[in-house]
Amino acid sequence: MAVIVFTESWDGKFKKSSFELVSYAKAMADSVGSKTIAISIASVDQDELKKLGLYGADKILTVSNEAFKTLDNQVYTKLIAEIAEKEDVRILVLPHNNTGKALAPRLSVRLKAGLVSAAVKLPSSYDPFKVYKKVFSGKGFAHQVVNTEKKILTLSNNSFELIESNTIPEIEEYSPEVSATEISTTVVDIQKQTGKLILTDAEIVVSGGRGMKSSDNWGPLEELAELLGAATACSRPVSDEGWRPHSEHTGQTGKIIAPNLYIAAGISGAIQHLAGVSSSKCIVAINTDKDAPIFEAADYGIVGDAAKVLPELIEAVKEMKA
């Protein structure tokens, strides 16, 4: 019996989210009295793999087959399902990111395991298996009960604290049988954002709305973000106007984020925008309209023009750092 956790690495390194996933899986494994098994695809050296042990992986299965170099949903599903059957999975955990969203639903059907997407907490009970989650894009909460014997969860980024448990993991190479004919998706081109922090990974996000008035006014916002080590984001009208790329749009139909700090400059806080950012641990609002709904969602507010306030904040951060 096992709790299995799917981890991802980038250029041979795990991101914090992978450690969050392992910590989360380990906490569940302790509650149900099973071991924690991590799956790691792509080549990662032994020292890096051992870090998964630091957060509680008892065993790590590594897969380095070329067939898994790019994400083919069916080939990946087959691999994870095979491991799940072999290890007698009880709970399977994946990240709630692009990969997890693509694979978890397929695995749910393949393993006949009920799926809870975007979990932010440990299950409230294991029998019945109940997980608290957001519904109606954060305008409500509910418990989702999973009635099947096996369960699958995807865990939202930055929602579970790292817990160190210093396990020495057993590391095993897993060699699946896979033929080239099983791969149906061919990657023909990749455009990587280079040097920029990934919005959904960022612990601090500085975001601009229509109150920024023009795409020419993003200089101070970007400077503040750079000083804070933050990612930049925007509201929907801004990306619709083409002032900023769609990949920066946060809100109900864009990115859903949960950073430790979200600074909203010139964003009024439409209900659809708040749906994408309301899980942020601390929200700062800067807006000229004191009645803007963003102030109801914010922890700190400044009624003022972002064009004047942002340079002040830049100065203050520089002073703090000095």
């Binding site: 980038w10 994400l71 990111n97 692009n98 990969t99 023909v188 081109d189 990749i190 954002q193």
Partner: peptide, 10 residues
Amino acid sequence: IDGGLEQVAI
């Protein structure tokens, strides 16, 4: 994909 876009033929 995390941190970019991929063009896929299928």
